[in-house]
């Protein structure tokens, strides 16, 4: 990992102060993994081996419904965390797939190393508190949106907050995330300003 990549990773863990030795150890725990477009990063039925920090690319996390169709639960992209977290922590087979929708570069840390961060450095508990709080609030607001907003409002709300790199992935993934048919998504994209 080069210095620029490391700075991006470091920014994901703000407020953690290391000694020089600690920092070089922290840095050594991460390795770069690269994926081509449409590679399956994690397969359902397998155990998630890594917690990821995304350097480049967009990834989708999805489950298959009874018809075998992909139902998108969320995305990760440059600067965000990624991985199938429940499988990673519980070391149980994943229910979901993680797929690269664009060529992707990600920094990866194993479960043992991830857990060791908390043991060795109490600062990570503070980070963890903020991190999980943000994830929880994000999921809650998405649930409210899905349950209360009409398709057009869901589309608008999402497009307003979504980063540009997410707007260029295949539409069917965005449509699925917003719980609408690809045709509806396509019509909204043509007719609705946000």
């Amino acid at each position: 990992m080069d210095d620029e990549q490391y700075q991006k990773l470091k920014a994901f863990f703000p407020n953690i102060s290391f000694t020089e030795k600690e920092e070089s150890h922290f840095r050594s725990l991460w390795s770069i993994r690269s994926f081509s477009q449409y590679d399956l990063i994690t397969e359902a039925g397998s155990i998630e081996r890594y917690f990821y920090f995304v350097l480049e690319g967009v990834q989708a996390i999805y489950v298959l419904n009874e018809k075998g169709e992909k139902v998108v639960l969320g995305f990760s992209y440059s600067g965000s965390p990624s991985g199938v977290f429940d499988s990673f922590i519980g070391q149980q087979p994943s229910q979901t797939f993680l797929e690269a929708l664009k060529p992707s570069k990600m920094l990866a840390i194993t479960q043992t190393d991830y857990l060791s961060l908390f043991e060795k450095h109490s600062g990570f508990y503070v980070w963890g508190h903020d991190f999980f709080q943000n994830i929880l609030f994000g999921r809650l607001s998405r649930e409210v949106e899905l349950l209360t907003l009409a398709a057009e409002q869901r589309y608008k709300a999402f497009m307003q907050r979504c980063p540009d790199e997410l707007k260029v992935i295949p539409q069917k993934y965005l449509a699925s995330y917003l719980n609408m048919k690809p045709e509806t998504f396509s019509r909204l994209r043509r007719s609705v300003d946000y």
């Binding site: 399956l40 397969e43 359902a44 039925g45 298959l64 018809k67 075998g68 992909k70 087979p93 797939f97």
Partner: peptide, 18 residues
């Protein structure tokens, strides 16, 4: 019957675990 590789991989993984 419509099949997808993702569905097949998921099922194969559960057999491998088994």
């Amino acid at each position: 019957l419509v099949v997808t590789p993702e569905n097949q991989i998921q099922r194969l993984n559960s057999i491998l675990v088994r």
